Simulated scan of single mutants.
Amino acid sequence: MLTLYGMSSSGNCYKPRLLLAKLGRPFRHVEVNAMDGSTHSPEFLALNPNGKVPLLQLEDGRILAESNAMLLYLAEGTSYLPDAGFERALVYQWMFFEQYSHEPYIAVLRALKKYPERAHQATPERVAQLLEGGHKALAVMETRLEKTRFMAGDDYTVADIALYAYTQDAAFAGYEMTRFPHITAWLERVATHEGHVPMEWLP
């Protein structure tokens, strides 16, 4: 059976859980997180020297880190990852956008709001910088979703899972989601797509 090491409240850890649920693939969840130091235990570092979650252990013992790499691996041969070259490249494009232009702002500000032990890092200057960067990323998504039902086109793909994980909490983090009606409609489409499970779901 697959084993997924992760922090249940993390958006990055939610991504592979959501895809596995939609695929109907059984897996074992092992709670590991940075808050209690367990990601830096000798046992975990032996699996992932980077000391981060999520971490996926395959049935044969091989290890795969990085949430978007897991999405691409697990989606291979399914409807969640196109076969055609250009359509597949669009999925990659939005997944790279998520990691470079979206997650560093929206996920970080969410963490500052969600975890009390990080509240002291939420200086006015840093919050303003995170809001600016996050609103810029959301504006890019809004422009895209004016034209397509999902991020890579008309079909739901792992690009939607990658961007949904933290966008669903953008309002909680302090972003003005009333500015982005097409994102709001997309969030609803993702949340009502067949096989969807909320972040709180665990196997």
Rank of each mutant, 00 (worst) to 15 (best):
R28C: 11
R28W: 08
R28I: 10
V30Q: 13
G37F: 03
S38H: 09
S41L: 03
P42V: 06
E43N: 12
L45R: 13
L45I: 07
L45D: 04
A46L: 11
L47H: 11
N48M: 12
P49S: 01
N50W: 12
K52F: 02
V53K: 00
P54Q: 02
P54M: 02
P54G: 06
L55T: 06
G61K: 07
I63Y: 10
I63C: 01
E66R: 07
S67G: 03
S67T: 09
A69V: 09
A69N: 14
A69F: 11
L72R: 10
Y73W: 15
Y73M: 10
Y73L: 13
A75P: 06
G77M: 02
G77E: 07
L81D: 02
L81C: 03
A84Y: 14
A84P: 13
R88I: 06
A89M: 14
A89W: 15
A89Q: 12
V91C: 08
Y92L: 12
Y92V: 11
E98C: 04
Q99A: 05
Y100L: 12
S101G: 10
S101E: 15
E103T: 11
P104E: 02
P104K: 05
Y105D: 07
I106V: 14
A107F: 08
A107V: 00
R110W: 09
L112F: 02
L112Y: 03
K114G: 04
P116E: 08
R118M: 12
R118W: 15
Q121E: 15
E125N: 09
R126L: 15
V127D: 11
A128H: 09
Q129D: 13
Q129A: 13
G133S: 03
G134Y: 00
G134A: 05
H135T: 10
K136E: 15
K136R: 15
A137G: 01
L138R: 02
V140E: 15
V140A: 14
M141Y: 12
T143V: 13
T143L: 15
T143K: 14
T143R: 13
R144Y: 09
K147S: 05
R149E: 15
R149S: 13
F150M: 05
M151P: 11
M151Q: 14
G153E: 05
D155W: 09
Y156H: 05
T157H: 06
A159W: 04
I161G: 02
A162S: 07
L163Y: 00
L163G: 07
T167I: 01
D169S: 14
A170F: 05
